[in-house]
Write a protein that binds this DNA or RNA. Sequence first.
DNA 1: CTTACATATGAATATATATTCATATGTTGA
DNA 2: TCAACATATGAATATATATTCATATGTAAG
Lengths: 111, 111
Amino acid sequence: MKAQPNQLVRLDSEDTVVQLADLFRLMGDPTRLRIILICLTEPISVGDIAERLTLSPSLVSHHLRLLKAARVLRGERRGKQIFYSALDDHIRCVIDDMVAHVGEPLDIEGD
Amino acid sequence: MKAQPNQLVRLDSEDTVVQLADLFRLMGDPTRLRIILICLTEPISVGDIAERLTLSPSLVSHHLRLLKAARVLRGERRGKQIFYSALDDHIRCVIDDMVAHVGEPLDIEGD
DNA sequence: CTTACATATGAATATATATTCATATGTTGA
DNA sequence: TCAACATATGAATATATATTCATATGTAAG
């Protein structure tokens, strides 16, 4: 599903650019990007994220706080644990497009 | 146009994640994102970018070097000037998807 | 060859931020 | 209430990096 043009989001607006940059910056850390990728598959608890990525629960929690604040992920408590998952499908699209960019064959000229 | 799945780019690969994160990190700086946005419209010279964004040519050049190395932009010399433009359309898609994410209405629950 | 212009580069620095560690908060069951 | 577990938070720190300034490289015209 392709994103529809959005009248309310002005790409030439100062605020919008900063808002977009904030999101890209969040995805720009490998550890955080791995966390995002894991959460895209299915809701997963903080402890399980930490275990699967061999990170400290504390570090994972710090990153999750940022991702939740930016509305990339959302957390849902189930008993003692809190399961994190993607808030919507756009981030997945963003990543897919970037994968396509990385997969683009190099042209003859090079740099 | 939606990106096609790419067999050669493995999302679970360590290298791929770092490669993706590098690109997102580049787009995560507001100044650099503005430079990218300007270059998406049409090829534009370093000096003109600097003028339109009221930045020093030196700073713009530093950013352009990174963006060119990451194959986000490409530079083409025309006389004394060098015109920069998007290397392919994927970055535009990435940004469009992120705009859609930003434009997503908040749910009732909030945080 | 010089001069003027356009862009690039390197060093220095101030700021941002990822990670760690210690501790706190919240939840469940005994 | 207490103990055990899960997650969150705050401070401290090491590292990364955006920006500036000075200088270098490259190009076209006289």
